[in-house]
């Protein structure tokens, strides 16, 4: 029967099967990302870097803490602290995972056509998604505090986009540090002068966060070329 189909073709197909069987098995997280149609090389990048994994764990841990913390609304001060820290953490976690000192893949990155800014963007999105999922589930369970449990989401997006926008001018760590300082000063001032303790997370705060997010995204879009420049320069 093999005379019907070319033997060379059959051998080639077997080689392909063999190679597939010999290929290193993707980890569970990687396969999950594959299911979600994340391209293979990005999936590997997201799960493989040890420093990044640290950022993941950090983000997940903090997110769960916030979920639990805001589920106890009897102590407004603790809610304030958690809400103030939460939006900054995804960005700080990613900045921590990036750079010469933290990343054993740094040298490899410099040599790859993946630009630094884009890399940070991928990692930030990753951490954000995980953090949102991790905090969202406990928040939904604690139905009485639903509004406060989600109050950090828009600020988190605002800080992330602001950091990425600043990274088109400054090195990643400096950019995130500037944003973090502005954020912390902002929420403390809002607490002092605002009508109540959680003023920064009220309607005006959320509106401001939405505006900052929009501006940040616009700046990133406008300065897209810096992606390419980093791609070739680094």
């Amino acid at each position: 029967m093999s005379q019907i189909v070319n033997q060379v073709r059959l051998d080639a197909n077997w080689s392909a099967i063999s190679a597939e069987l010999d290929a290193p098995k993707a980890s569970m997280a990687e396969r999950l990302l594959g299911r979600l149609r994340v391209p293979g090389h990005i999936a590997r990048l997201v799960v493989a870097t040890p420093a990044l994994r640290r950022a993941w764990y950090l983000a997940i841990g903090i997110a769960v803490l916030i979920g639990l913390g805001s589920a106890r609304p009897d102590n407004p001060a603790s809610v304030f602290v958690l809400l103030a820290i939460a939006p900054a953490l995804p960005v700080l976690g990613v900045a921590m995972a990036y750079g010469r000192s933290a990343d054993p893949m740094y040298e490899a990155q410099v040599a790859t056509p993946m630009p630094g800014l884009r890399l940070v963007a991928i990692r930030t999105v990753t951490v954000l998604v995980v953090a949102i999922l991790a905090v969202g589930v406990p928040a939904l369970l604690a139905s009485t505090t639903r509004s406060m449990a989600f109050a950090w989401l828009l600020p988190a997006l605002a800080l992330t986009s602001a950091s990425l926008a600043l990274m088109t001018w400054f090195p990643p760590r400096r950019a995130t540090a500037i944003v973090a300082v502005i954020w912390f000063v902002g929420v403390v001032v809002a607490r002092r002068v605002g009508p109540d303790e959680l003023a920064a997370f009220g309607a005006f705060g959320q509106l401001g966060a939405a505006m900052v997010t929009a501006i940040g995204v616009a700046v990133i879009g406008a300065r897209r070329s810096s992606f390419d420049r980093m791609e070739h320069a680094s």
């Binding site: 029967m1 093999s2 019907i4 189909v5 073709r9 059959l10 197909n13 077997w14 099967i17």
Partner: peptide, 14 residues
Amino acid sequence: LELLYRRHAGWLTA
């Protein structure tokens, strides 16, 4: 698996 492939791949492909 390879033996199974050798036995059946021909007709299956065709």
